[in-house]
C-alpha cells in the first residue's frame, strides 16, 4: 500500500470519528463544582452592608456597584450603582463588566435571591472580582439608611454599631449628600488577564 492510500485511510477514519464527536463548548477556565463550592464558602466573597458603607464613605475607587433589579424597578439605588438587569446579562452582553480584572463588582438586588444566582453564574464561568452584598437593598435600607436605636439592654457593641450607622445614614441621606450622578464612573471594558484572546496572525 502506498503512502497516499495509507494516509487517506487514516485521515478518513479520524475525520469520521471527529464528525461524530458531540460539538460542545470548551470550558477550561470555568470552575468545576468543587471549586465553585470553595468560592461559596469563602467569606471574602461577601460584603456586609456596613463594610460597603465604609468603602463608599472612604471613597474606594476600585468598587463598582451593580444593581441587578429589572430596569423598571431601578429606583433609589445605592449611590454610584449602575443597572444591569439580571434577565439581560447574556442578551445585552454585559460580560465585559463581570469579566474583568480591575474593579470589584458588588452585586445586589432587593434581597439575596437573584443576586446570589447571578453571583453563582459569574463564579462558575470563572469570572473574578464579583462580590455579593449580604441582605441586598432591603438590608441596606433598614441597617444603613434607617438604623434602629438599640434597646437599652443591648451590649455596648450594638451602640457603637448604631453610632457608625447613624453617621453613615447622615452621609448617604443628609443634606451634605452629593447627587448620585456625581459618582458615576465611566466604564472601560477591561479584559481579564487570564482568559485573554491570543493575538496572532501574520499580518
Amino acid at each position: 500500500m502506498n503512502t497516499r492510500l495509507t494516509l487517506s485511510t487514516i485521515i478518513l477514519a479520524l475525520g469520521t470519528v471527529a464528525a461524530m464527536l458531540p460539538g460542545k463548548e470548551n470550558d477550561s477556565v470555568m470552575l468545576n463544582e468543587r471549586q465553585v463550592l470553595q468560592e461559596m464558602l469563602l467569606d471574602a466573597n461577601y460584603f456586609s452592608v456596613d463594610e460597603l458603607a465604609h468603602l463608599l464613605i472612604s471613597g474606594d475607587p476600585s468598587i463598582q456597584l451593580i444593581d441587578i433589579r429589572p430596569a423598571a424597578d431601578f429606583k433609589e439605588p445605592i449611590r454610584g450603582a449602575i443597572n444591569v438587569p439580571f434577565d439581560s446579562i447574556f442578551t445585552d452582553n454585559f460580560a465585559y463588566l463581570f469579566d474583568q480584572g480591575v474593579m470589584k463588582n458588588i452585586l445586589y438586588s432587593d434581597d439575596d435571591h437573584t443576586a446570589a444566582q447571578l453571583w453563582m453564574i459569574t463564579t462558575q464561568l470563572g469570572y473574578q472580582n464579583n462580590y455579593l452584598l449580604k441582605g441586598g437593598l432591603t438590608e441596606w435600607k433598614s441597617s444603613i439608611l434607617d438604623p434602629k436605636y438599640p434597646e437599652s439592654t443591648a451590649p455596648k457593641e450594638a451602640f457603637d454599631l448604631y453610632q457608625r450607622r447613624a453617621a453613615a445614614s447622615q452621609y448617604f441621606t443628609g443634606a451634605r449628600a452629593l447627587p448620585p450622578t456625581d459618582l458615576f464612573k465611566p466604564l472601560s471594558p477591561i479584559k481579564r488577564k487570564k482568559k485573554k484572546k491570543v493575538e496572532g496572525g501574520c499580518s
Binding site: N26, K195, K196
Partner: peptide, 18 residues
C-alpha cells in the same frame, strides 16, 4: 484533526486560540 480532538478531550481552549 488535532485541534478538534484536543478540544474534545479538553486539552485546549479553542475560545482563546487565535
Amino acid at each position: 484533526l488535532g485541534l478538534v480532538f484536543l478540544n474534545h478531550f479538553r486539552m485546549i481552549d479553542l475560545s482563546i486560540v487565535y
